[in-house]
């Protein structure tokens, strides 16, 4: 009689088991990075703090009511028109900018392409966007409004950056992040230049109830 050999263990289904595990981890893996609209809150003012007096024309007022409707500068407006209106306001450049920290007087905006109307903002660094919402406003609408306003700044920054450095601002920022060494310092200067030319000044007023 022939000698019986112990049969080998069939490893064919090993792959199946491994695949099953693999698929489980594929499904449960979340690689998403958290991203969102970033915001810097203002510091808590001291109790005796008096807010500076700001000219009415330098404030762009956006009101959102509890039915998620927009009131911009006392006119009803659709969300789709908000970006254009904000650009027009920021880019107006009707007067002199903020005086420098070393006491140099503010200069008129030489890169603005707006109407230079005396009844709208003086300078991008003086232009304040104030968003006032109701306590009952939907968070989704609030974010949409913030997003539209940020878009307005992006458009303006891109334009200026294209003129000064021949590259879109979003591209410049990306390059700045990837760069290192002396190139980084150089790009940082450019980024800062664009940022200070069109600073994002969006303030959140206390909501009405």
């Amino acid at each position: 009689m022939a000698r019986r050999e112990t049969p080998e263990i069939n490893a064919g289904s090993m792959a199946d088991i491994a695949f099953l595990l693999l698929i489980f981890f594929l499904v449960t893996t979340t690689m998403n990075v958290d991203s969102g609209i970033s915001k810097k809150l203002s510091e808590k003012p001291p109790p005796d703090y008096k807010p500076p007096i700001i000219k009415e024309k330098n404030i762009f007022e956006v009101n959102i009511n509890r039915n998620n409707e927009l009131l911009v500068e006392d006119n009803r407006m659709e969300l789709s028109e908000l970006k254009e209106a904000a650009i027009k306001f920021i880019d107006n450049g009707g007067g002199d900018g903020k005086p420098g920290e070393d006491g140099t007087p503010g200069a008129p905006c030489d890169y603005c392409e707006g109407e230079r109307s005396p009844s709208s903002s003086d300078h991008p660094n003086k232009a304040i966007i104030s968003v006032q919402s109701d306590r009952g406003t939907d968070y989704g609408t609030y974010i949409e409004v913030q997003n539209e306003l940020l878009k307005a700044y992006t458009v303006l920054r891109n334009r200026l950056c294209q003129q000064r450095y021949g590259i879109a601002y979003s591209e410049l920022e990306k390059r700045y992040k990837d760069s290192r060494g002396s190139e980084k310092d150089d790009l940082k200067k450019k980024v800062e230049d664009i940022k200070t030319s069109f600073p994002q000044i969006i303030s959140d007023a206390e909501p009405t109830s």
Binding site: G36, I37, S38, K39, K40, L41, E43
Partner: peptide, 13 residues
């Protein structure tokens, strides 16, 4: 958040 000086905020979207 402002009371405790946690000023960096991100609205996740």
């Amino acid at each position: 958040l402002r009371d405790v000086n946690a000023l960096k905020l991100s609205y996740s979207t």
